[in-house]
């Protein structure tokens, strides 16, 4: 039996993963087992060939368009959430779920309901996790007014959700200059007043700028005061508070 496995190594973002799905599809049609990984495997198997995939926006775009048209908005969103997660085998999972939904001229828009399947179940779990983090950041992002012109915020999300914050905040603050900085991934989402969002990668700040960013603001003091006085001390419950807002979020929030 000519069993062969192909590991496609791609870059860790949506475009990279869906380019790998595009390439992998061709190999899988020829009967090869396909895995998609975001980093080089440490101990490759004997019958495995490793191939690097160069991200290609046209190929990824084709895959994404197909998913959207054939499987609908919900599946599309779910797979995008999976692709930005920190789960190491996310590429393979996305690939397998897509194969289940689309191979052999199938077009199963309800594929995500097949929760007794372990791949679908895993993707669904990841979707909930990423969605939850995204939704938390809708609330936990804290802006600070810098020089009376720009609203600046720093976040440290676990999953790569920075770009996904754009539609929500652009709709909410259309007449403001604002930026959200993902400190871990060193990229920044920038929105100019009345314009559209853009992402800039490899963003480092000078010491001078950092100092400016950490200046205290009057409204931070007011908000701290509000958070204190709105607490009902007879019902004090720090465990519940920590469950709702884990410590990892608090370093970027002035009220803690």
């Amino acid at each position: 039996m000519d069993y062969e496995k192909k590991i496609l190594v791609c870059e860790d973002h949506i475009e990279g993963i869906f380019t790998a799905v595009y390439e992998g599809w061709i190999w899988h049609m020829r009967g090869m087992a396909v895995e998609i990984s975001v980093r080089e495997p440490e101990y490759p198997d004997f019958f495995t060939t490793i191939e690097e995939v160069v991200s290609d926006s046209i190929k990824a775009g084709k895959v994404l368009r197909t998913i959207r048209e054939k499987l609908g908005e919900e599946v599309y969103e779910t797979l995008c959430y999976a692709a930005v997660s920190t789960y190491p085998d996310k590429g393979t999972l996305v690939f397998r779920v897509l194969w289940q939904a689309l191979s052999g001229r199938r077009c199963d828009r309800h594929v995500m309901e097949n929760l007794s399947d372990s791949d679908v179940n895993m993707v669904s779990k990841i979707r909930i996790k990423v969605w939850h983090e995204l939704h938390r950041f809708y609330g936990f992002v804290r802006f600070r007014e810098i020089g009376g012109k720009v609203l600046f915020s720093k976040i440290n999300p676990e999953n790569d959700i920075l770009e996904m914050l754009a539609p929500h905040f652009a709709d909410r603050f259309p007449r403001e200059n604002w930026m959200i900085y993902d400190e871990g991934r060193k990229k920044v989402l920038f929105h100019p007043k009345g314009g559209t969002c853009s992402v800039q990668k490899d963003m480092e700040f000078l010491q001078e700028q950092k100092d400016m960013l950490s200046e205290k603001e009057e409204y931070e003091e007011l908000f701290k005061c509000f958070c204190r006085s709105v607490t009902v001390w007879e019902r004090r419950n720090p465990a519940l508070q920590q469950q709702q807002i884990p410590l990892k979020f608090r370093s970027n929030m002035p009220e803690f």
Partner: peptide, 28 residues
Amino acid sequence: RKGDGKGIGNSIHPGICHSFAGDGRCIS
């Protein structure tokens, strides 16, 4: 409610919690 692009703010159906007070209740 989507923003109209001229003012400030919008609203989403599930609501958003922005912080949590010491009694564990949400500050929205």
